[in-house]
């Protein structure tokens, strides 16, 4: 490190730069590479970035590049008016068939992917290992939804509480509209209330989730995204493969996720390609009679 600036001051300046610029700056010199990869720099950068812009994780499925397989596109977006794409994440995993993963959900920086969209192939992937324990408990549905088909319901987080998206008679690929329910006070079943109902020309494919503003992002039947709030629908100029989108809030600890290294253990060979260079964290393979879960762990910079 040059003596020109104390490390602390250099960190103060560089943490203000976007992740993409910082990746480029790894080429400046070896001491910068080591500084920019260090845990104290990473966490300082995360704090600065988190204070500036809340993030969303968007997954889509490109319509081009048909061979050898479709390309899954994961990006971090700023949760502000521009929905700017800040960083593309490279997913190191491939599904067995030419297909894409179902994003089960993401929580505390861990994304759960399941390879079950073309037949159940028994593969569940946890992407990033800063796996923190979560406490689950049962919460009753709004009374009006008792008896509704679970296929018509989806649960998501909303501010400090939870919300349910109810689809109107969901067909194989789309339905006409949806209703958004919110549990106004978390854990208080009496506080369930209907936030709004939406219907879209041509139909709704998937209700993806909330923005910070309270707008709901919806995938239309044709694979385009719109942002809905009561009485207002806004096109988002994003389009991808039908039924391929996922949107969820994202823990800032994943900003440099593409830096993660991963390893797999398996009892037989697999066609999945993973980057297995160095720095592996704990990986376990679980088995029972009917299911085999392959758990892949990707080490975070900030374990």
């Amino acid at each position: 490190m040059s003596d020109y600036l104390p490390r602390e001051t250099l960190i103060n300046i560089l943490t203000r730069l976007p992740a993409k610029t910082l990746l480029r700056f790894r080429c400046i010199c070896k001491s910068w590479l080591s500084l920019l990869s260090s845990p104290d720099f990473t966490s300082a950068h995360l704090r600065t970035a988190a204070a500036k812009t809340p993030l969303l994780l968007l997954r889509g499925y490109s319509l081009t590049g048909l061979t050898p397989r479709y390309k899954e596109l994961y990006s971090l977006r700023s949760d502000d008016a521009n929905f700017t794409s800040l960083l593309d994440l490279q997913c190191p995993f491939n599904t067995r068939a030419a297909n894409f993963f179902r994003v089960v959900g993401s929580c505390n920086g861990v994304i759960c992917l399941s390879d079950d969209l073309l037949g159940y192939t028994y593969t569940v992937i946890l992407w990033n290992p800063a796996i923190r324990s979560e406490v689950f408990r049962e919460v009753k549905l709004p009374e009006k939804l008792v008896g509704a088909s679970p296929l018509d319901l989806a649960v998501t987080g909303y501010k400090d509480t939870i919300s349910i998206f109810q689809y109107d008679q969901r067909g194989p690929y789309c339905c006409k509209g949806f209703t958004v329910w919110v549990m106004k006070e978390y854990g208080v079943e009496e506080s369930w209330s209907k936030l709004f109902t939406g219907s879209l020309n041509g139909g709704v494919s998937t209700v993806l989730g909330f923005r910070k503003s309270g707008e709901v992002v919806v995938e239309k039947w044709d694979g385009t995204l719109v942002s809905c709030q009561p009485g207002k629908i806004k096109k988002m100029r994003i389009r991808g493969g039908k039924e391929s989108f996922y949107l969820g809030t994202y823990a800032e600890s994943l900003i440099l996720l593409d830096e993660g290294k991963c390893v797999q253990t398996e009892d037989n060979g697999s066609s999945d390609e993973v980057d297995s260079a160095g720095n592996a964290s704990v990986v376990r393979s679980l088995e029972n009679n009917s299911l085999r879960h392959h758990l892949f762990a990707v080490s975070a910079l900030n374990p």
């Binding site: 040059s2 020109y4 600036l5 001051t9 250099l10 103060n12 300046i13 560089l14 203000r16 730069l17 976007p18 610029t21 480029r24 700056f25 080429c27 400046i28 010199c29 070896k30 001491s31 910068w32």
Partner: peptide
Amino acid sequence: AQKIADTIKDKPHQEVREIFHVENDY
């Protein structure tokens, strides 16, 4: 610090090295 960060954000590597007085040791 923000002003410096904004200034170097889109600069080529060699200029950044000169600004920070570091040598390319790769």
